[in-house]
């Protein structure tokens, strides 16, 4: 277990290094000048030069990347002042320290992600199990068609519709907002309830279908037949044997989904005006804000890599055939 963790964390660091380098060089491969963009329309060549120096993009790209990398561990000095480690630089647009911006926004994204994950795991796996247990019967058909409809929904459509109906017309749910959990748990819950539900619709649909097909596959396995032949009831077979085999694919996808969501639920955040990592990433792209772009990409990549390690560990826990070394 220890060796597994060390090996995987080293690998993860390597991946993050490669991703940040790729982002860096791709950014400068785009034939547009971020300095000109930041400087605006009435820009003289002299001011452009100053802006360029302020942004730190007057140096060769390799050197810039090196400074950026070293800055994470040692901090950096900019014309605006000193940036403490871990320093991810300042935003090109509003000189906001990137690290602080990420720290400020992350709780929103974290709350959104985990709340939605609880909802879609509960309903997705639950409905998938019921559908598998009632294969071909009405419950299965309802769950299967509901998940097909759910999977074809768009978040902005459902989001706007749900807000209009539930918030504006019926007034049974509060207008979405983010209140820190530590400040007011109840307000935190009510404010995020609608985003959670809307964000989890598509995921619930996917998890229902995946759980169902995975369960159906496991129920056709030889060892399930053996369990029946030993006198185990259908219920026992379902709960003691088949689910363990069925959870493998579900956990794999869950690891990826969780990572992606922590990198920012862009559409959901936009739909409900939540200020999370997703909002930052959209702005970073639009404003050609390299430090911010690197920051949000790093968050997303870290989340995905991290949850992949967690998934692999979970796999070994569920299936004794999987070894961690």
């Amino acid at each position: 277990m220890y060796r597994f963790l060390v090996r995987r964390i080293l690998g993860a660091a390597m991946i993050l290094l490669i991703i940040s380098a790729l982002t860096f060089f791709l950014f400068f491969a785009i034939p547009r000048d971020p300095a000109a963009f930041a400087c605006g329309k009435l820009c003289t060549p002299e001011t452009l030069e100053i802006v360029r120096r302020n942004l730190g993009i007057d140096e060769p790209v390799f050197l810039q990347y090196w400074h950026w990398l070293v800055g994470i561990f040692t901090g950096r000095d900019f014309t605006y002042g000193h940036c403490d480690a871990p320093c991810l630089g300042y935003s090109f647009v509003n000189q906001e320290p990137i690290f602080q911006a990420l720290v400020d926004r992350f709780p929103t994204t974290l709350s959104l992600t985990f709340g939605a994950a609880v909802v879609f795991l509960l309903f997705g796996i639950g409905m998938g199990m019921i559908a598998a247990a009632r294969q071909g019967r009405p419950a299965d058909k309802i769950a299967s068609s509901a998940s097909l409809i759910g999977a074809s929904m768009q978040i902005y459509f459902v989001g706007v519709l749900a807000t209009w109906v539930l918030v504006d017309q019926l007034q049974i749910i509060e207008r979405p907002s983010y209140t820190p959990l530590t400040e007011n748990p109840l307000q935190w819950f009510y404010g995020l309830l609608l985003p959670w539900l809307v964000l989890s619709i598509i995921f619930t649909a996917n998890y229902t279908r995946m759980t169902r097909s995975s369960m159906v596959e496991q129920l056709g396995e030889d060892y399930v037949r053996t369990a029946r032949a030993k006198g185990m009831s259908a219920r026992t077979v379902f709960l003691r044997f088949a689910w363990r085999g069925a959870m493998g694919p579900v956990i794999t996808i869950f690891g990826v989904d969780l990572g992606v969501l922590l990198g920012g639920a862009i559409i959901t955040e936009q739909t409900f005006s939540l200020h999370g990592i997703g909002e930052l990433s959209i702005k970073a792209v639009i404003n050609q804000d390299l430090p911010m772009l690197l920051g949000v990409i790093l968050v997303a990549a870290t989340a995905i890599v991290l949850f992949n390690i967690v998934v692999d560990a979970a796999y070994a826990f569920i299936d004794p055939r999987v070894r961690l070394s």
Binding site: T226, K230, M232
Partner: peptide, 24 residues
């Protein structure tokens, strides 16, 4: 039937690898 299976009547299957639960 459940009381009978594995008790009075037992069964052995062809492929012992897939017929035993890999998880237990």
């Amino acid at each position: 039937l459940e009381r009978l299976r594995g008790n009075k009547v037992a069964m052995i299957f062809q492929d012992p690898l897939t017929s035993l639960s890999p998880f237990h």
